[in-house]
């Protein structure tokens, strides 16, 4: 494509505001391919906004953003389809079944139908795949959402609190799909900093939209983490 780059994500001076409120301020981050970035910070610190910008759903207001070697938002179309987003919303239609929902996404992403069955099996949802999503428990919906997010085998996974609604067993089930073992480049946020730190190669701590810390997880002392969430 336009420029071969080793880093999966390169942010340089990224800022974003909503009206007069600045949500992200001057972020400069570089994440190598295959690595995991944990984004810490309390609600409203800008975590979700950052993920939505990386997912091409929001445009940056200042600075440059490069995702998988393509500059956003100009070449957003070139990375769409190579990103998997697992956010607070499952992005599934409540009145369609799991199989129908995944079938719809498969069509949009031009993925073979067999992949849908494969994914339903991978998240152990094949037995409940023909029930409308609205009848399923939150944990089951989250499993379907995981299947949806990686249906098209994205190179980059954006995970906004991926383990919410998942019990430990289900967490283990999705581990090979969205965990470290998946081998994908990942950006993840979590309410549970301990868990996020354990998985991360790089940590970005956000406070009021600014980078309060950027570096390896070892360099972040527990007191600073507590203060971040205070």
């Amino acid at each position: 494509m336009s420029q071969v780059s080793h880093a999966a994500i390169e942010l340089d001076g990224l800022s974003r505001h909503f009206g007069e409120r600045t949500v992200l301020r001057d972020l400069t981050v570089s994440l190598p391919a295959g690595a995991t970035l944990a984004v810490l910070g309390r609600n409203g610190a800008g975590k979700s906004t950052l993920l939505r910008i990386l997912a091409t759903l929001l445009r940056p207001h200042a600075g440059t953003v490069r995702v998988l070697g393509e500059e956003l938002p100009r070449r957003g179309w070139a990375v769409r389809g190579r990103i998997g987003l697992l956010g607070h919303e499952p992005l599934l239609y409540r009145d369609l079944t799991g199989r129908e929902n995944l079938g719809y996404h498969a069509r949009l992403h031009r993925v073979a139908r067999e992949r849908v069955e494969q994914m339903l099996q991978a998240v152990a949802m094949e037995r409940r795949a023909d029930e409308p999503v609205r009848l399923l428990s939150r944990g089951m919906v989250q499993r379907l959402a995981v299947a949806r997010a990686i249906l098209h085998e994205p190179e980059l996974l954006l995970l906004d609190e991926p383990r919410s609604n998942l019990d430990p067993a289900a967490g283990e089930l999705v581990e090979p799909l969205i965990g470290r073992a998946s081998g994908r480049t990942r950006v993840l946020t979590s309410h549970d900093p301990a868990h996020a730190l354990a998985e991360a190669d790089l940590v970005l701590a956000l406070k009021d939209g600014r980078a309060a810390y950027l570096g390896p997880p070892a360099g972040l002392d527990p007191a600073a983490v507590r203060e971040l969430y205070a």
Binding site: W77, R80, G81, E89, P90, L91, D95, H105, L108
Partner: peptide, 17 residues
């Protein structure tokens, strides 16, 4: 309404279409 309330817009915008 379903696109707005059930994430249909996001899902569509994430797809390479």
């Amino acid at each position: 309404v379903a696109e707005r309330e059930q994430g249909g817009f996001d899902a569509f915008l994430l797809a390479p279409v």
